[in-house]
Design a binder for these strands. Structure first.
Lengths: 134, 134
DNA sequence: CAGTATCCTAGGAGATACTG
DNA sequence: CAGTATCTCCTAGGATACTG
């Protein structure tokens, strides 16, 4: 859960004129893995959540994958991992301000998806229609 | 290029109370593949672009991958593929209104990335610091 | 409880070559 | 020019154990 090896043209406007446009190998930070967004959702209300507790709404994601996701988020500064010295152990995860700042963009994306889902479904249907036939 | 097999908890707020929260297996539409965003960038100014022309700012992406990306975008209704009956063949790609509607969210994400890149870099540095040591 | 440790697989993506 | 057709590789991510 990657600091993904990263694309070339960063998502900045593309240049067709510059012959050497490959020049700007910026390093975007990908949050596009499968689980990060959902973990964000799980923590957005501000309540600290425990490891196992997080697995529930994530449909019993395997511990390995959840650990990887959480570690990557921690490393990127999106979540804080707090170990309470008790027995049995209790570890809680919370969003940092940086992590919380991601919620806006996430909402924007989700809103877009919700708003245009019908259009996409329709586009797919007519594509399926057209391709096999014509 | 995928209609990706999709996650469970859609990116809607997560539910911890509902024991059967796995119930809503919504089908988000992922645009998170490696190239779609960048193709969007290549077409956002409205100018129709040709297949080979697109390869340039995409750092000579292989034809196979570009085709897959473009097909998926076409199927989702993001781009239009126009074949001009000439010889040699000329095919042009343009954004549809639906495709263009994605630019807003894309910008939002890019703006976030640009704004917080330093914070992330810093977080990573101090994580690298803390982990091996402590 | 909160994780490791292993093993395994699907499929995104690159390289290379060929065609209408 | 605008693509197919093949092959191959990598790795995200799942399944199944085991442990401090």
């Amino acid at each position: 859960m990657p600091d993904q090896p990263v694309p070339t043209v960063p998502l900045d406007p593309a240049r067709f004129d510059d012959p050497d446009c490959a020049a700007s190998p910026a390093q975007p930070f990908r949050v596009g893995d499968k689980w990060t967004g959902m973990v964000l959702r799980c923590l957005e209300d501000g309540t600290p959540r425990r490891f196992t507790e997080l697995r529930v709404p994530l449909h019993w994601i395997t511990p390995k994958v959840l650990t990887e996701t959480l570690r990557s988020m921690e490393r990127n500064g999106f979540v804080t991992r707090t170990v309470h010295d008790e027995n049995p152990p209790r570890v809680e995860y919370t969003l940092t301000p940086l992590g919380r700042s991601l919620i806006g963009p996430l909402d924007t994306a989700c809103d877009w998806a919700r708003a245009h889902a019908p259009a996409i479904t329709e586009a797919r249907a007519s594509y399926e229609q057209g391709s096999p036939v014509a």
